[in-house]
């Protein structure tokens, strides 16, 4: 508990997490407002459509998570940390936990904020959350943000440089996963198992039978897992990456 408190103090006594949180909320809620504002009678706003901007918020949250650890390397406060807490695994686990929890909270606020602003703008639309799909589409965002933060912290520990870690994360999520689909024959099969595509399946998979145009919400995932195993797969990927990062951090000179 002490270590969690230490990492919480470290995180909130600098400004970048606050800025990233505000930016993530602005992007996601802003997109929801846009979607609600442009909805029409033929294509009414749906719950899935309110979450259109979650992918952009995800990137901001991953930048926040990566910065939380890479700035420690940048300013060598990681050394001060290991000096005070020589158990590196414990120190880094505490940081990962705090950052992931913050990411999850940002995710929930972003998701319910997006849904909330849509209900304000389009009070007549059917935006009641009642099916499991609708709950996943909104409340599931926090889980995805949380595990994505674990991935971002792990990459940050491995790469140690802010620019490098952020490049790896953004290129991976926004470019590489889609480019792999272009590989002849095997590309699509590989893509089905790529972590962020699978995470997307948790949020958008098993949609309600109410026929819904795809362009009204985030594009659908082509992952073959059903939503809950998809989340477990994503979490598993995050944990494997974290274990690798912790092993390396323990072996390496600080």
């Amino acid at each position: 508990m002490t270590l969690l408190a230490v990492e919480r103090m470290k995180l909130f006594t600098t400004r970048s997490p606050w800025w990233c949180a505000v930016l993530a909320l602005a992007v996601t809620v802003g997109f929801a407002a846009l979607m609600a504002g442009t909805a029409s009678a033929e294509s009414p706003i749906t719950i899935a459509a309110t979450q259109f901007g979650y992918g952009f918020g995800l990137m901001v949250v991953m930048v926040m998570a990566a910065l939380a650890i890479t700035t420690e390397y940048r300013f060598s406060t990681i050394r001060a940390t290991f000096q005070a807490i020589p158990n590196r695994t414990a120190a880094l686990l505490a940081k990962t936990t705090v950052v992931a929890l913050l990411a999850a909270v940002i995710g929930e606020i972003a998701a319910f904020g997006s849904w909330g602003i849509a209900t304000v703008i389009e009070p007549t639309a059917d935006l009641a959350i009642n099916t499991p799909f609708e709950w996943r589409a909104i409340a599931g965002i926090g889980a995805v943000y949380g595990f994505a933060a674990v991935i971002a912290v792990s990459v940050g520990v491995l790469v140690r440089h802010s620019a490098g870690a952020i490049s790896v994360l953004l290129i991976w999520t926004s470019l590489l996963e889609n480019l792999i689909m272009l590989i002849p024959r095997v590309g699509r099969d590989i893509h089905q198992w790529l972590p962020f595509n699978v995470a997307h399946q948790f949020v958008t998979g098993d949609p309600d039978p109410s026929a819904r145009a795809i362009q009204d919400g985030p594009g659908l995932s082509d992952a073959v897992l059903s939503p809950w195993p998809a989340l477990a797969y994503f979490a598993g990927f995050a944990v494997v990456l974290l274990v690798i990062a912790l092993t390396v951090a323990n072996k390496r000179d600080a």
Binding site: M9, K10, E72, F75, T77, I85
Partner: peptide, 25 residues
């Protein structure tokens, strides 16, 4: 130990820097 005086986050106050160290100890 004082190995390098610059091992602090530039945007964190002196008090906040010492507070987390104190908490960890």
């Amino acid at each position: 130990a004082l190995l390098d005086a610059k091992w602090v986050h530039p945007n964190r106050s002196a008090r906040a820097h010492l507070r987390w160290l104190a908490k960890a100890t």
